[in-house]
Design a protein around this nucleic acid. Structure first.
Length: 152
DNA sequence: GCCAACGTTGGC
DNA sequence: GCCAACGTTGGC
């Protein structure tokens, strides 16, 4: 089983929305590297950190599980959507994503600053300068360390 | 195929 | 609101 970190802006869709909805299609990703992780690397049952970006403060808010893979992102074919992609061919959709399932919301968010301050996480993708990728792999070790920080 | 211009992300 | 980093676009 693999581990991941997936970003969303909590003002748009945060961990509390997922707690309410239980299941959610992770649509709107329009970066090929992030798409490739979802399309090619994720498996049902993988776990992912739900990361709050563009938040005060930004950080890891909880855990979710990959519930379904190979999901055609419906927004690419919706002319009303901000994520509409007129170049995507319905017979060969460009944007494939996953459906995620709520697992838990941490009692307290683990702030990005705490991740940066932890020398054991120096190599973690999310703390790297200029790292914008919205879907990132997390190593087993990083996963355990961050979970430990979340649970005190 | 190069690369400048432009758009987006996301921390601060 | 600023701006650094980085991805994409499009002219050549």
């Amino acid at each position: 089983m693999a581990y991941w970190l997936m970003k969303s802006e909590p003002d748009v869709y945060g961990i509390e929305h997922l707690r309410r909805d239980r299941l959610e299609v992770w649509d709107g990703v329009r970066n090929y590297t992030a798409r490739n992780f979802m399309r090619d690397e994720m498996s049902v049952g993988d776990l992912a950190f739900f990361y709050h970006s563009n938040a005060k403060p930004p950080g890891v808010a909880g855990v979710m599980r990959i519930h379904r893979t190979g999901v055609v992102d419906p927004t690419q074919f919706d002319p009303e959507s901000h994520y509409h992609d007129p170049k995507s061919d319905p017979d060969d959709p460009r944007w494939i994503c996953v459906e995620v399932e709520f697992v838990e919301a941490f009692d307290e968010l683990v702030p990005l600053q705490d991740l940066k301050d932890n020398p054991d996480l120096a190599d973690m993708a999310v703390v790297q300068r200029g790292q914008r990728l919205s879907v990132q792999p997390v190593t087993d070790r990083e996963w355990e360390i961050v979970l430990g920080m979340a649970k005190g």
